[in-house]
Amino acid sequence: MTRAHPRELGVLAALLLLIAGTAAANPRFLSAQSVRDLLLSAAILTVLAAGQTVVVLTRNIDLSVGSVLGLAAFGTADLLATHPGTPLPLAALAGITIGALCGALNGALISYGGVPALVITLGTLYVLRGAAHSWAAGRQINAADLPRPFLDLGTATVLGIPLLALLATAVVLAVALWLHSYRSGRELYAIGSEPAAAARAGVPAGRRIRTAFLLSGSLAGLAGVLYAARYGTVDATAGQGMELQVVAAVVVGGVAIFGGSGSVTGAALGALLLTCIGSSLAVLRVDPFWQQAVVGALILAAIGLDRLLTTRLAARAARTAPEVSRAG
């Protein structure tokens, strides 16, 4: 496991290439402010991607994260707007709790109901968005309604690095440590890699999958809090459509959509790459249409690369062990 991960390195190389190319065309792309903006924009996507990675590794998917983010963002903002005295950690905890509850709901429906995550989370995507709309009832919470210190969090920097980016990094490192070095983390890979073998090895698959969704929901809740702090303006549509960006980031970052392989570091790099593409194409004044086309092409390339690697590995195995399937 300590071997080099070619996929992560590939994404990193693409990222560096993109940055170098854009900077060459427009040096202001690398100005401190521009980099800060980039990291800020990537932070929320990265937090979501970390949660999504954990879910996708188990051969599941969480499409509800955009709606969870919206609900948590609105909940946190509403709490702070109506009770301005609420301590910020408590407000953040409230947002995370909203996300955790949504994630627990997803996990319970999937593991007890035996329904594919794709269907369940597609359902909760709409249900939770509907809940946000009915809660907001058309209201929009503006920056003026929110306490100053909360909004400052969204722009605060430590040693010049945005606080949100540091938070996202901390989340990624923590999840990476869990996935890489803890038995329960490894079991997530096992479940996604071969569910039948996982069952035979006594892996508590249901519990692990519920944990994965709980984590994904909680991180989406956290992302909601960050969203409210960063943008200050929150209504019921916050984070709409975000789920697809997240899945894109995860896939581009080398997490196999059928589970079992990939890393949260890769997913974070994927999130960074997608964000970078957005701003670099803007800097280069490229038609926004192309921006989407590039993202699409990247996803296809990532999946194509995975297929290629898998088939080549299989072919190599067939060569090294000729005709293993033949009775002798």
Binding site: R183, S193, S261
Partner: peptide
């Protein structure tokens, strides 16, 4: 588990752990 190493296939859920429960 095709994606896991041979070592992890042998010792899944029983990996030797060191400090703080890390594998």
């Amino acid at each position: 588990f095709p994606d896991l190493s041979i070592a992890e296939n042998l010792y899944l859920s029983r990996q030797p752990t060191g400090r703080l429960g890390r594998i």
